[in-house]
Design a binder for these strands. Structure first.
Length: 890
RNA sequence: GGGCGCGUGGCUCAGUUGGUUAGAGCGCCUGCUUCACACGCAGGAGGUCACAGGUUCAAGUCCUGUCGCGCCCACCA
């Protein structure tokens, strides 16, 4: 059993990724036909467009799935963003690449056919996953039409909502992207603070010497003005009520209306009304029955209605309008003005509010139950403060424009009759008009907003609208893990759709993680283009290292900064474990130990070495520590505190197992041979530790676990199928922990002194140890370990340490350690002692002050007072010794 | 305009109900190629927890205000 000297994940990660996926291991493990599917994120050597922003999410999902499964949760399903979709994509593309194909060279049609064929071939279990779960990933959105199951669910939902009057078609002001040529929902419009101008334009009033000055940020829309509005309470314009103004440039007479849209406080208090190009004006126009004059078209060009400006681009038209107004002397003034300009989320083109006929979801009736579900705790947000954001949005929700004029997506299941104009909404393509029975029907060319179908995801993937076994078993799903940037787009809509269509909440808990940021703290996102290629970095450092570094930073409610340095240190951790294993394997060979592993499932207390023999201190200690770590890590993962779990595991493996346990065991292995108690204990700890590590670093733990005792009869085929270790009260050993603590203090004291004196670490020194109480036992029983770890020769004494100038002294309440050092070191020792004394004096003064306060003694709980007293006594004893030692030097 | 969050050693951050001399990783300094690991070992320096008040026996932790930074939502021309 030979391990390379350096951890090289590339050599085993692809193999495990392959096996886990192909064995459908999570599915198989559940023993139920559920759609749980997880992919260690991301599998190396796979082409695909997974980006780093998803990795945190995928990692957290994967950790949770692995952990819960190892804990025996059998009805788990996490509808994680598009992790399954991406898994699909990567697997499929990988397969195709193996066949020497890629999208570009093959052409879309042929590629799609092959994808489909491959999905068919892939096997029943995964196939359904692929087909269903692939739906929410960008790439597979293009092939909704290939997916009869999902299309059926979407139509079903649309028709149901329509029947209940929750979907309507109407003329409304929508955000229109002139470049993408599609309507956008409010959420798809991003607002930018942009410097602009506020132009004051004079409109002459008919039959009056006066004129009205309107203020606008968009002068070109004046061509479509059909009124000007003043506030009815505005005294300044009372005499003009009922009159008309002459619209400059267009020479059209338009009325002066009284409406609240005009704020007397703002600018001149007069607002121009353009019902066709401004949402507010649209509403005002409705109230006053104003005509809508559309002067800008779907491409952002001026329409024939714009008269001589027809055909001009909207921004060009603005310049011309301003120039013309200026020539006529109608521009009163121009003020610089910050305006929040709406832009298309995808292409950043300024959106144009346009009146058009679109499909809408009536959201108020859907939002109410969705709010209640969170209020009464059927859905819980983690961290909790997101609930407030959720409420804010839900209480102020506006109707949702769901029709899109894109070429991919689900077609809207509505048909228009060419004869009578009737609209027929149906699950199946209708043969004839529902009203006049005409056969001349045409389907609405628009498709649905992608979030409409995504909103159905938690149940459409389970076979809805059929009442399938999967749906019964796994709905509502357990947990949704996602980013807050998608809270409104997706989470809120899943909740609304789930309650409406599936009759229950789509999930019980929503864990919201932070965003992954780069070294400059920029959000990583596809549209921003600053994404790290996860395949590249995982190829370079290993999947586990990337996972570990993400998890260490994944405190709930905070963003994760991912830098190369962090990944580097995580890789170092992986290497550390790798080499600990390497050390064990080498020694097993040397001692003739055959592969051996403890029985499943739990953390076992080791057997004693033999009749009359005692269990070694380091064994009792490490089991107790591991027991504790397992307990805390488990609870941390359970509460989505991944960073705590990662840190605990790190601390245990590196600073307890490697730094102390293995170091002490080196002594034992040197003399022994065969599978004795030492080996059984060591292997048990390592095996258990790997299982604790597995959800966080699946590849490394799998590889080592397999090498450790993979082929043994009765062992699960994968560590992922083994049990997560569980806390056992009986394994907890506070006494061993206390003793080990003392041992470490003694060793550290010796190392400290040696380093202070700048002595060669290789030189063995003489030391006198004056141990008291518990330390006396430790000193007697563990002297061998202490001598080895500190590289000293111990001379045990019972009496209290004399103040001597013979060596350097380190004191604690339990022991005094006197290291014999050359006389020349007095100056260093003096400095050291002086510093120590200074520190002690400070702490003692503080403690004394507090203990002298009667309020403290009366009000503080007794244990707090007692422990402070104890501490003060210890400090004082130490101080006395340090002073004596200092005196002896002089 | 409303809502949320952040400000802790050079850097990136932990610190869950207030109670040991405030922690970690990276970086830095010193010494070590000790036969698992230099992606390592041992030791060390470095913080009045943004500022000002308040509550409390006790505050990085709770309250108020100030300053600085960020995010989200919102139809005010």
């Amino acid at each position: 059993m030979h391990l390379e000297k350096v951890y090289e994940p590339q050599q085993f990660e692809p193999r495990w990724a392959e096996r886990w996926v192909e064995a459908g291991i999570f599915r198989a493990a559940l023993g139920a036909p559920g759609p749980v599917f997880s992919l260690a994120i991301p599998p190396p050597n796979v082409t695909g467009s997974l980006h780093i922003g998803h990795m945190l999410e995928h990692t957290e999902i994967d950790v949770t799935i692995r952990w819960r499964r190892m804990r025996g949760d059998n009805t788990l399903w996490l509808p994680g963003t598009d992790h399954a979709g991406i898994a699909t994509q990567m697997l499929v593309e990988r397969k195709l690449v193996e066949e020497g194909l890629d999208r570009r060279s093959v052409g879309r049609e042929a590629f799609e056919q092959r994808v489909w064929a491959w999905k068919e071939r892939y096997g029943d279990t995964i196939k359904r996953q692929m087909i269903r779960l692939g739906a929410s990933c960008d790439w597979s959105r293009e092939r909704f039409t290939l997916d009869p199951g999902l299309s059926r669910a979407v139509r079903e939902a649309f028709v149901r909502l329509h029947e209940k009057g929750l979907i309507y078609r109407g003329e409304y002001m929508v955000n229109w992207c002139p470049r993408c040529h599609t309507a956008l929902s409010d959420l798809e419009v991003i607002h930018d603070e942009t410097p602009g101008n506020l132009w004051h334009i004079r409109y002459p009033v008919n039959d009056s010497p006066r004129s009205l000055v309107v203020a606008t940020t968009r002068p070109e829309t004046m061509l479509g003005d059909t009124a000007v509005a003043v506030n009815p309470r505005d005294e300044r314009y009372r005499d003009l009520h009922g009159k008309t103004v002459r619209l400059p440039l267009m020479d059209r007479d338009i009325p002066i209306i009284l409406d609240e849209v005009a704020d007397p406080e703002f600018a001149t208090g007069v607002v121009k009304v353009t019902p066709a190009h401004d949402p507010n004006d649209f509403e005002a126009g409705r109230r006053h029955n104003l005509p809508k004059v559309k002067v800008i078209d779907e491409s952002g060009r001026m329409t024939p209605e714009a008269g001589r400006y027809a055909g001009l681009d909207r921004f060009e038209a603005r310049k011309r309008v301003l120039a013309d107004l200026d020539r006529l002397g109608l521009i009163e003034k121009v003020d610089p003005y910050q305006l929040s300009l709406g832009k298309c989320q995808r292409c950043k083109t300024p959106v144009e509010p346009l009146v058009s006929i679109q499909w809408f979801v009536r959201t108020k009736p859907l939002a109410e139950p969705a709010i209640r579900a969170v209020e009464d705790g059927r859905i819980r947000f983690i961290p909790e403060n997101w609930t407030k954001t959720y409420y804010e949005w839900m209480y102020n929700i506006r109707d949702w424009c769901i029709s899109r004029q894109l070429w991919w997506g689900h077609r809207i299941p509505a048909w228009y009759c060419a004869d009578c104009g009737e609209t027929t909404v149906a699950r199946e393509t209708p043969a004839a008009c529902s009203k006049c029975r005409s056969g001349r029907l045409e389907q609405d060319p628009d498709v649905l907003d992608t979030w409409f179908s995504s909103g159905l995801w938690p149940f459409s993937t389970l076979g809805w609208p059929d009442q399938t076994e999967d749906l019964r078993t796994f709905y509502p799903t357990s947990l949704l893990i996602t980013g807050f940037d998608i809270l409104f787009f997706w989470v809120a809509r899943m909740i609304m759709m789930g309650l409406e269509c599936a009759g229950d909440v789509p999930f019980r808990e929503v864990y919201i993680h932070g965003l992954v940021r780069d070294a400059e703290r920029q959000k990583m996102s596809k549209t921003r283009g600053n994404v790290v290629d996860p395949l590249e970095i995982t190829e370079k450092y290993g999947t586990d290292a990337v996972r570990m570094s993400l998890l260490l930073g994944a405190a709930p409610g905070t963003d994760v900064v991912l830098t190369e340095e962090r990944i580097l240190s995580a890789r170092a951790f992986a290497n550390k474990i790798w080499n600990a294993a390497r050390f064990l394997f080498l020694n097993m060979e040397r001692s003739g130990v055959e592969p051996w592993a403890p029985e499943e499932p739990a953390l076992h207390m080791p057997e004693p070495a033999g009749p009359g023999a005692e269990t070694a201190l380091e064994d009792r200690w490490i089991f107790s520590r591991l027991n504790r770590a397992v307990d805390l890590a488990s609870r941390a993962i359970d509460r989505y505190r991944y960073h705590e779990a990662a840190q605990l595991v790190w601390q245990f493996f590196w600073h307890e197992f490697c730094d102390w346990y293995v170091e002490i065991k080196k002594l034992r292995f040197r003399e022994n041979s065969g599978l004795d108690a030492h080996w059984r204990n060591t292997l048990t700890v390592f095996d258990t530790g790997l299982r604790m590590l597995h959800p966080i670093m699946p590849f490394l733990s799998e590889e080592l676990w397999q090498r450790l005792a993979g082929g043994l009869p009765g062992r699960p085929a994968s560590i992922a199928l083994a049990r997560y270790p569980e806390y056992g009260e009986e394994v907890s050993d506070p006494e061993a922990e206390r003793q080990m603590e003392i041992l470490r203090e003694i060793v550290t004291a010796a190392r400290n002194l040696r380093a202070d004196m700048k002595l060669d670490p290789r030189q063995q020194l003489e030391a006198l140890l004056y141990a008291r109480g518990a330390a006396r036992d430790v000193a007697r029983t563990q002297s061998e370990a202490i001598q080895k770890l500190a590289n000293i020769r111990l001379d045990l004494r019972d009496e209290t340490a004399p103040a001597t100038s013979e060596g350097a002294l380190r004191s604690t309440p339990e022991f005094d350690l006197l290291l014999r050092v050359p006389q020349a070191q007095t100056e260093v020792r003096r400095q050291r002692l002086e510093k120590e004394i200074e520190q002690l004096e400070k702490v003692i003064a503080g403690s004394q002050r507090q203990l002298a306060n009667p309020e403290f003694l009366n009000r503080a709980p007794a244990p707090v007072v007692a422990s402070l007293r104890q501490k003060l006594a210890d400090y004082e004893a130490q101080l006395a010794k340090s002073r004596e030692a200092l005196a002896a030097l002089n």
